[in-house]
């Protein structure tokens, strides 16, 4: 079973590369039983969303004119 320390690392790496099947499986199994790491993943996802929606950036719907 993955440790929380490993799960946090894989959670971050999943944003940067495709995880191997066994990594994904191990992470998902861990997240099923660990609320702390589930929150960690939600918050990692939120950080990415926040960076994408930073107010100085062009809004996503501004990227193409109709």
């Amino acid at each position: 079973m993955l440790t929380c320390k490993e799960a946090t690392r894989l959670t971050s790496e999943a944003q940067d590369r495709d995880l191997a099947m066994m990594e994904t499986l191990g992470l998902e199994l861990h997240l099923m039983i660990c609320s702390g790491c589930r929150r960690y993943r939600e918050q990692m996802d939120f950080l990415h969303q926040a960076c994408q929606h930073h107010p100085v950036r062009p809004a996503p719907d501004e990227k193409k004119s109709p």
Binding site: T3, C4, K5, S35, C37, R39, E42, A50, H53
Partner: peptide, 26 residues
Amino acid sequence: FKANGHWLPGHQPAVWGDPEEDLSRQ
């Protein structure tokens, strides 16, 4: 983390509520 690699009590990520709402706050 504890020596076994799991969160130490009190160091787990906290509940953030609904952070998406904050994206519209300056």
